[in-house]
Design a protein around this nucleic acid. Sequence first.
DNA 1: GAAATTGTTGTAAACGATTGCGGTTTTTTT
DNA 2: AAAAAAACCGCAATCGTTTACAACAATTTC
Lengths: 335, 335
Amino acid sequence: MDKKIATIQDVAAQAGVSTATVSRTLSKPSVVAKATREAVLAAVDRTGYRVNATASNLRRQRTGSVIALVPNLANPFFSQILAGINSVLHPVGYGLLIADTQAGPNLEDRLSAYLQSSMADGLILFDGTLSPEALKNPGRPPVVLACEWMDDDLPSVCTENARGAALAVGHLFDMGHRQIGHITGPQGNVLSETRLTGYRDALAERGLAARPDWVFDGDFSMDSGAAAAQKWLRLERRPTALFCSSDEMAIGFMGAVQHRGIRVPEDVSLVGFDNIEVVEHLTPALTTIRQRRTQIGEQAARLLLDMIEAGTLSGPSQTVEVELICRDSVARISD
Amino acid sequence: MDKKIATIQDVAAQAGVSTATVSRTLSKPSVVAKATREAVLAAVDRTGYRVNATASNLRRQRTGSVIALVPNLANPFFSQILAGINSVLHPVGYGLLIADTQAGPNLEDRLSAYLQSSMADGLILFDGTLSPEALKNPGRPPVVLACEWMDDDLPSVCTENARGAALAVGHLFDMGHRQIGHITGPQGNVLSETRLTGYRDALAERGLAARPDWVFDGDFSMDSGAAAAQKWLRLERRPTALFCSSDEMAIGFMGAVQHRGIRVPEDVSLVGFDNIEVVEHLTPALTTIRQRRTQIGEQAARLLLDMIEAGTLSGPSQTVEVELICRDSVARISD
DNA sequence: GAAATTGTTGTAAACGATTGCGGTTTTTTT
DNA sequence: AAAAAAACCGCAATCGTTTACAACAATTTC
């Protein structure tokens, strides 16, 4: 039947009113009289009309979508956060655009392109390696930092990383461990560094020394966990426990040492970070710091929406709780 | 300085040309004279102008983005596919919108809303439980089915599920197994069913009977794998090997049985499906069917782009290869 | 050297909605 | 019953581009 897709004009003609009335019926029904409203709605129904988002957005000077900038989309860690974001964005008519910061080369350029090009009404940033300065264009849309806490000027939603680290080494200490190592996240990443200093502080607080050869460089990936395992194996004096800055690294480490016949937790205890879904199905199930990823996404999205509506560039930074989940990867040491 | 964001008018004024020329300089530089072109580009630079995507899209009758409809965004399986999609979309100026089919209730309605509302130039669909009819609106944008092969009219990109199943049970058979079970994916899902019949056919081909109590209902999740393990444990006569329709279910199964002191692969052999990243770090590392997720995304995106450009609603369905990855979760049986 | 061709630019009409402003009614107030 | 207020609706401008068409200049062809 209808080859062409109906426009607001068609509806107006059908209903015998002006386009203004049609528009109002759809956005603010209360201001149009009942009779006309019904006529319009009937016409909408008949024509199968749907408002053209592009035209509407142009007129209203907005885009109706927000961009989530994630480093490495393929990392499953983010998908749950994205789900959280989407769950608050979708009901209020916003779309979620995703972009991978890893994809191209000239990141800072692309970032400022995103900021300026009016492709989105706001931006949620997950990449902790960006310089905050790049984000401070005048006339930019609101930005929310998620998972990172780079800058005091920019609002952010962030897990209590330092506290997580403290919980982890505290638990290891309580279980009798005195030789506690650490696998870090990528260098230059704020998360990594907060967790690292959290680890150091927690040790110091308990009168323990942080041996530099007991902290292994990682990058959150399983492979880097496995690489740390190789270094650990070569150590003349090995820490009896490791706090890993991500579950994935803990998995990589565990896989690598088990492969060599080393038992977890009897020979080495592990605590991860994130509580990704898989870790409770491992053998042994991994003790870890839980980070509510959906909640991070939800809070970030809500914060951003508030900023968009209020037209402000700043907002209240928020924090999401962490929690120690005890499973089977930490042994009690008695001596 | 510049409070307001520059429009094409500003650039035109600065460069002393018309807006038409500015537009042309940016889109088809070859048709404008060198001198003017340089003047325009200089003005663009000076003003920091970026084309307003919304206005451009409105005029050009497109949206510049495609929607990926995924069931359950939180599932890490999809994130890699999305990365693949994004990697082809982004370079050519398309944005990727993601939507969760699980989120709301009236799915079919929302779907047709997506299709009509001109929010996207095309759609990539991952949800195998939708009725194909809903997709056949007249005047709809092109649709590509990914991971699923629901319908002959709709182009799709799909892994060789049946062949994957055949490879899996073939390998188990070759290793001496004669009692081979299966954990299925969710019912009503085309993937699950193709793999299930692939499994049955492979058994039949080798003269093996498919015992109904050896196929366990699952839904791709780890928990459902663990649940299958409980049933398996209660069996009076247990299959010596299981082909799992997803790696996650294999992980759940493995974790659960190991928890009971049962050894993999000595007591039960497992083959998964997908080759998600984690499985090679498990102990034992999981033998599985590799499915190139990034490639699925890339092919689907390219196919869709072709359709969008050609303005057609159909295209060549494609297939992506599977491959058996042998690791340590299958034991050789000699008897 | 006139005619035809090619190259370069400007004019102005779209694209499809939203909304300030003002004009009619209708209702309420006095 | 006249005046004031409220409710309802239409006109037309506007959002920022793109692009057919026409105009004009420069070049080529005969």
